[in-house]
Design a protein around this nucleic acid. Structure first.
Lengths: 226, 226
DNA sequence: CCTCCACCAGCAGGATCCGCATGGGTGTTC
DNA sequence: GAACACCCATGCGGATCCTGCTGGTGGAGG
């Protein structure tokens, strides 16, 4: 399960991250709201664990509200030292799904995170993928960036879909050949390069922040951050 | 929102039920696990609020496990006097989605119940159309009849989609020209006839009950009945 | 029986799409 | 700094796929 932890207290963060990883999950950590928002918006996580109070403008509630405004429905668990009922209600009303107060037992945190992750897995067929301002609608087979429609060809669509389903992760050429081309061998040509190039041309042309990134000697990755 | 409350303590039950109703929800109440299970299994609720301890064999955890075993995924909030972390973890692991310990503030219960109800209600866009044993999956752009995959071309797909969206209703040629071909004039040819014919060939060939019906001097209609 | 409407097979034009090769650029290594 | 590996972009050619039209046939309705 891919989990995003946004927590400024380094000690708590280390503790939680370690525990979740030992339970077999993948954990990304951000130390402030701005970074957290960025990651949450650009990559797909199964669960977000947010500190309610965060340094630097963007606190937990603000973060959730922004995400929900963007149509992001990832389940959110708030972690907070604020025990007052009012605070908890505020967090839940803002779009949080659960609220756990510090100090907490790690076993309970884990159980709650897994409970949250369980739900959406009850297959809700994703109908649209989103990375930053780039959206891909599986139903209408439509791609838009910053609201503007972009025409892509079938193969390009499959390629982009695969990249977006693994946003934030490096996708190797071999994986692409398998999943997008159904090739189970090396075609000895640069088919992939060509299609990536064409996608780039259509998606990133005219935008200062490119979304498709090359990872030398590895493959490609799509995400917001440069 | 339809909420099922399973709680043996009459006082608590009255209090919770009243509060939820005042917040605009519909509440059914069962005083023991057996009744609760029966209601939950036979009617559709948006959220289940279960007492962890219940008289008479079927307690909260048992109830959830049974429901989950039946494929019921309704979100569950446990209400319990058992505050031990182990107990909470047990409830969550059994398939519960949240766990609130007594005594609790009603405002928090309400916020949590509404948080639980929020998730699945996020509008589920229709992703597949179905007429008799014919299915059309918008996501994978796939058509199957009686489980067997059928290849259709893009235009045929649009045609079929439009027919199925108006299953049981006559669809005129003019409507089809407008919606499927984006023609706003009469092409003076039998384009439609041809495509309908091709669809028929693919869909109804080999089945005794045809789905596509001609309505003379009117148009076409798709439906199960002959 | 006659007429009109609908059906279907075949055909051919066209457009789309895709993959390859080539030449240029950039980062890396020695 | 030179050689190398990796990656990028563009143009081209081919092949497939798709689509719409024609024209003859069948059947329903009057």
């Amino acid at each position: 399960m891919r989990i995003l932890l946004v927590e400024d207290d380094a000690e708590v963060a280390r503790f939680v991250k370690k525990g979740l990883q030992e339970a077999g999950h993948t954990v990304e950590h951000a130390a402030n709201g701005r970074d957290g928002l960025f990651l949450a918006a650009s990559e797909g996580f199964d669960v977000l664990v947010l500190d309610r109070m965060l340094p630097g403008g963007v606190d937990g509630v603000r973060l959730v509200e922004t995400l929900r405004g963007q149509g992001n429905r990832s389940p959110v668990l708030f972690l907070s030292a604020l025990t007052a009922v009012d605070e908890r209600v505020k967090g839940l009303k803002a779009g949080g799904d659960d609220y756990l107060t510090k100090p907490f037992a790690f076993a309970e945190l884990l159980a709650r995170v897994e409970a949250l992750g369980r739900r959406p897995s009850a297959e809700v067929p994703t109908t649209r993928l989103k990375v930053a301002d780039l959206e891909l609608d599986l139903l209408s087979r439509t791609v838009t960036r910053a609201g503007r429609k972009i025409d892509v060809q079938p193969r390009e669509f499959r390629l982009l879909e695969h990249l977006m389903r693994h946003a934030g992760q490096v996708v190797t050429r071999t994986m692409l050949l398998e999943k997008v081309w159904d090739y189970h061998f090396d075609p000895q040509t640069n088919v992939i390069d060509v299609h990536v190039s064409r996608l780039r041309h259509k998606l990133d042309k005219g935008f200062d922040r490119p979304l498709i990134h090359t990872v030398r000697n590895a493959g490609y990755m799509i995400r917001a951050q440069a």
